[in-house]
């Protein structure tokens, strides 16, 4: 059993309270599914933690006609249920209902998934990238809104003096899809993830997770699709060809798969993603 009886554990009732604890050096404890494994990685648990799960506003998903707000303490399971069936959010729902396993999805939160720096295979990251989500943070100097791409890139510094509180989404997607590739049917972290979406202007947005250390947009492929004569008519095979031609990823080596494999499978995942988009649009 853990020994430090002196540990400080703040169950914040408000964002101010949480920020105060953070300012005193407390680490944010989300669902616990990553942090509680620290001792097995040879890392001590933090001396002081603060939790956000009792702040009502951070445990809700607000769905308005053109604006959706997701609290940082919302779990994957709740997120999946809240957005299911909403056109355009298929990728995000796919990420929320496909990540890890059912028990973890009932506990792991949106904030935890986005703020775990060492977790390259986070499902929500590429899904939120194609949503062009805005991340709301509470900093010691007040609230701050930042794009998800910038957040993911700069989060080691950003989170030093801030708490991620909410994620904001517009409703500007027609359809989206989340294609994850675990080595089994499910249950292990995907070795590669492609989220793909098409917006109201028929522009394609594509993001890749788990292949590199941090998820990012595949801008080269997005540009190649946009440059297709007459615009890109969704065609899975053509998308895969363009993905192969514009594959600018440097796959990371890991115990489960090497970098070559992660990079090699991307065109196939793009193909599946475009096929899923066609299917969704066909149903719409």
């Amino acid at each position: 059993m853990a020994q430090s009886v002196e540990r400080s554990f703040t169950v914040a009732g408000s964002i101010d309270e949480a920020l105060a604890a953070r300012q005193q050096g407390a680490a944010v404890l989300a669902g616990g599914t990553w942090m509680m494994r620290d001792p097995l990685r040879g890392v001590d648990l933090p001396e002081a933690v603060v939790t956000l799960h009792r702040i009502p506003a951070l445990s809700e998903v607000e769905v308005d006609p053109d604006h959706t707000v997701i609290g940082a303490a919302v779990t994957h399971a709740v997120l999946g249920r809240a957005l299911r069936g909403l056109a355009g959010f298929e990728a995000l729902v796919g990420a929320a209902v496909g990540a890890a396993n059912p028990g973890i999805r009932r506990v792991a939160t949106v904030g935890g998934n986005l703020c775990t720096l060492d977790f390259a295979a986070a499902d929500l990251a590429p899904a939120l990238l194609v949503c062009e989500a805005m991340v709301e943070m509470e900093t010691f100097d007040g609230p701050k809104l930042i794009g998800i791409s910038d957040f993911l890139r700069d989060r080691p510094t950003l989170l030093a003096d801030a708490i991620l509180t909410k994620v904001h989404l517009r409703r500007d997607l027609i359809a989206s899809a989340h294609i994850r590739l675990p080595l089994r049917m499910a249950g292990d972290y995907p070795v590669a993830i492609v989220s793909i979406a098409v917006d109201k202007d028929k522009r394609f947005r594509i993001a890749v997770g788990s292949v590199e250390a941090v998820a990012r947009r595949w801008t080269a492929l997005e540009k190649a699709l946009a440059d297709e004569p007459g615009g890109f008519a969704p065609n899975p095979e053509r998308a895969a060809e363009l993905a192969a031609e514009n594959n600018d990823f440097h796959g990371r080596d890991g115990t489960e798969a090497d970098g070559w494999y992660r990079r090699q499978v991307l065109p196939a995942l793009v193909k599946r993603g475009v096929a899923a988009l066609l299917k969704t649009e066909g149903q719409a």
Partner: peptide, 16 residues
């Protein structure tokens, strides 16, 4: 042994 936990040592699961 590189695979010393259930994250990296992949046992078959029900869907497999």
């Amino acid at each position: 042994i590189a695979q010393d936990n259930f994250e990296t040592y992949r046992l078959p699961l029900a869907p497999d």
